[in-house]
Computed example of a mutant assay.
Amino acid sequence: MPMSPNRSLRLGATLLLSFSSLPALAGRPLVTDDASVVAPGMCQVEMSAQRDPGQGWFIPACNVANDWEVGAGFGGVRHEGAWRRALAVHAKTLFRPLTEDGWGAGVTFAQQQLTGLNGAQEGLRDRSATLILSIPIASWAIVHANVGGIEHRAAGHGARTWATALETTHGHTGLSLETFGERGAYRTWQAGWRWSAVPDVLDLDAAWGVQHCDGVRANYAVLGLTWTFPR
């Protein structure tokens, strides 16, 4: 049975926003955002590749005015048997920076676009805003919580978004477990692993997740890296 236009838009938005993991907003492999930004005078590049569905991202970001992080990048998402170009931009600022012994809070604004969906010229364009809270619960563990909203411009409606995560660190290795989603659309569970190959310079990461959308369950796997360097 052919897919209805509304459902195609909804699934396309889900592909862009959930499987792309709101690219470059959180410290990889987290999808849940954290109350930190790239250090002053520094930039970073996040790259990732995902299977089921296939996609890849290249997202540079830099510190601006100490408490702001601004990033913009591009990628490709496989949808309906074809690769679609994808663009993403974001800006994040902190109300209170996260420290080892104190909570942190901030806000992120983002826009993502998937071009050429179903022959449309404008494709899918979604805008979102997210409030962030990060709370250390031990010297080796932090809890993150997000709440926000998203506007699906092509579909003409908005929705609430949410995410929670537990992030742990053991030497050069980090482990995470999180759940995130969009009210009335999808929910996802994801487990992640991170290894600092060169501390404060090069991190490698991997994640595996399970998403539920419109009664359909889908598994996915992601590999990525983060490179940090002086501006």
Results as ranks from 00 to 15, higher is better:
residue 27 G to P: 15
residue 27 G to D: 14
residue 28 R to T: 05
residue 28 R to S: 07
residue 29 P to D: 09
residue 29 P to G: 04
residue 30 L to S: 12
residue 31 V to P: 03
residue 32 T to Y: 11
residue 32 T to P: 13
residue 32 T to V: 15
residue 33 D to S: 13
residue 33 D to G: 13
residue 33 D to N: 12
residue 34 D to S: 15
residue 34 D to N: 15
residue 35 A to C: 05
residue 35 A to H: 12
residue 35 A to I: 14
residue 37 V to W: 07
residue 40 P to C: 01
residue 41 G to H: 06
residue 41 G to I: 10
residue 41 G to M: 07
residue 42 M to Y: 11
residue 44 Q to G: 03
residue 44 Q to I: 00
residue 45 V to K: 02
residue 48 S to Q: 14
residue 49 A to P: 06
residue 49 A to N: 08
residue 52 D to W: 10
residue 55 Q to V: 05
residue 56 G to Q: 13
residue 57 W to V: 05
residue 57 W to F: 13
residue 57 W to H: 08
residue 58 F to H: 10
residue 58 F to W: 15
residue 58 F to R: 07
residue 59 I to N: 01
residue 59 I to R: 02
residue 59 I to W: 01
residue 61 A to G: 08
residue 63 N to E: 00
residue 65 A to S: 04
residue 66 N to E: 08
residue 66 N to Y: 04
residue 66 N to V: 03
residue 66 N to H: 10
residue 66 N to I: 00
residue 67 D to T: 02
residue 69 E to K: 01
residue 70 V to G: 04
residue 70 V to D: 03
residue 71 G to Q: 04
residue 73 G to P: 06
residue 74 F to D: 13
residue 76 G to C: 01
residue 76 G to D: 06
residue 77 V to E: 11
residue 79 H to N: 11
residue 79 H to C: 01
residue 80 E to C: 00
residue 81 G to E: 08
residue 81 G to Q: 09
residue 82 A to L: 07
residue 82 A to D: 12
residue 82 A to V: 12
residue 84 R to M: 03
residue 84 R to E: 12
residue 85 R to S: 14
residue 85 R to N: 13
residue 91 A to T: 11
residue 93 T to C: 05
residue 95 F to Y: 11
residue 95 F to G: 11
residue 98 L to N: 10
residue 99 T to S: 15
residue 99 T to Q: 14
residue 100 E to L: 08
residue 100 E to P: 04
residue 101 D to S: 14
residue 102 G to H: 08
residue 102 G to C: 01
residue 103 W to Y: 09
residue 106 G to F: 04
residue 107 V to T: 10
residue 108 T to P: 01
residue 108 T to W: 01
residue 110 A to P: 01
residue 114 L to P: 05
residue 116 G to N: 12
residue 117 L to C: 02
residue 117 L to F: 03
residue 118 N to H: 10
residue 119 G to I: 05
residue 120 A to I: 02
residue 120 A to Q: 13
residue 122 E to L: 08
residue 123 G to D: 04
residue 123 G to W: 05
residue 124 L to D: 04
residue 124 L to E: 10
residue 124 L to H: 06
residue 126 D to T: 11
residue 126 D to S: 07
residue 127 R to T: 11
residue 127 R to S: 10
residue 128 S to H: 02
residue 129 A to M: 09
residue 129 A to C: 03
residue 130 T to A: 07
residue 131 L to P: 05
residue 131 L to M: 14
residue 131 L to R: 07
residue 133 L to E: 03
residue 134 S to T: 14
residue 135 I to C: 08
residue 135 I to T: 11
residue 137 I to G: 02
residue 139 S to V: 01
residue 141 A to G: 03
residue 141 A to P: 03
residue 142 I to L: 08
